[in-house]
Amino acid sequence: MSVDANLAATAAQAPADKAGKLKMSGNGVNVFYGDKQALFDVDLNIYKNQVISLIGPSGCGKSTFLRCLNRMNDTIDVCKVTGKIVLDEQDIYDKNIDVVELRARVGMVFQKPNPFPKSIYENVAYGPRIHGMTRSKDELDDLVTSSLRRAGLWEEVKDRLDQPGTGLSGGQQQRLCIARAIATQPEVLLMDEPCSALDPIATAIIEELIDELRANFTIVIVTHSMQQAARVSQKTAFFHLGKLIEEGPTDQIFTNPINKKTQDYITGRIG
């Protein structure tokens, strides 16, 4: 199938009213850690209600790019970002932007599950509470319940909400972190290798969840598993040595990539 036909097919699969709307975009993004340049002139569009996978060998800049999307790189002193990153037509590096509010709109799930050393309930309630999202205990309870439900964890924890989140299994902890991330009702969800510490069953549950979450969120996922990228995403972007080499519909990238570097990486010829 030609690239255009693939694009048309991908567009046809997504709901018409939501698909094709630009949610975030990077234009000429450069990132420096001190003198070392980690990203070179990256242009990438992220569309609403789509999952986009960022793939590439270790140190290629995919996580760096992901962290630019909610300004997580601000926490690193020597890190400098140039270029423009836009969320709903708003430059997120503009000096008037409230970074705390930005991170509520662009949530993040990390590689290792990192629940707070608090109860399961408090893990999820923490974000909505500090952002003042609910007016009463009942409302907060509802939000915690619905977040845990959407993360596919409710049935497993509903009888022990007061127990520590750290007591759950790895896969459950990761779903707790996802529940925590979606409790603040973000618009974009960033996931940095969310399944790399999980067994195949827990991975399958998270992947199923990603597919369900796509209806309400825009998801950017960094993964080292080609198969995972192929399974969960509609678009895939391949990074190599800090540059965006190729991006396109996932089907095309994994069956017929245009760039030779992409082909070599996904078939296991360069590391």
Binding site: N259, Q263, G268
Partner: peptide, 14 residues
Amino acid sequence: MATPDNEHIVTSYE
């Protein structure tokens, strides 16, 4: 067009 003239890292696959 991407053609695989590089060898696989896993030689038995090749």
